[in-house]
């Protein structure tokens, strides 16, 4: 079972590496942000799969922090400038 979970984690890791292409070439910034969000979600999947493989149950707290900060990053990205701040 452990080898199977590690194989699935490897597949998700390959997905992260492929999503890097879209982050690098993405024509608009929102494309890059979407790819970064997908990389974050895949990273959560990898961490959840690694926790039983490496026998470190505390890794699920890392996944919790990942999922909390995904919302923060996207919200900070799409925040609109309210004032023209000076110039």
């Amino acid at each position: 079972m452990s080898a199977f979970l590690l194989t699935v984690a490897l597949v998700l890791m390959a997905g992260i590496a492929a999503g890097l292409i879209r982050v690098a070439i993405g024509p608009t910034p929102s494309d890059r942000m979407m790819a970064a969000q997908l990389m974050g979600t895949s990273g959560i999947g990898v961490i959840l799969l690694l926790a039983p493989v490496l026998a470190v149950p505390a890794l699920i707290d890392v996944a919790l922090i990942f999922s909390l900060l995904a919302a923060v990053a996207v919200t900070a990205f799409t925040r609109r400038r309210l004032t023209n701040d000076g110039d």
Binding site: M34, A63, A71, R80
Partner: peptide, 19 residues
């Protein structure tokens, strides 16, 4: 974890699509 990811994904998708 899944609940938080769903909330973050819905929020982010709406914000990005609106912008």
């Amino acid at each position: 974890v899944w609940l938080l990811v769903v909330i973050a994904g819905a929020t982010g998708a709406h914000l990005i699509a609106k912008r």
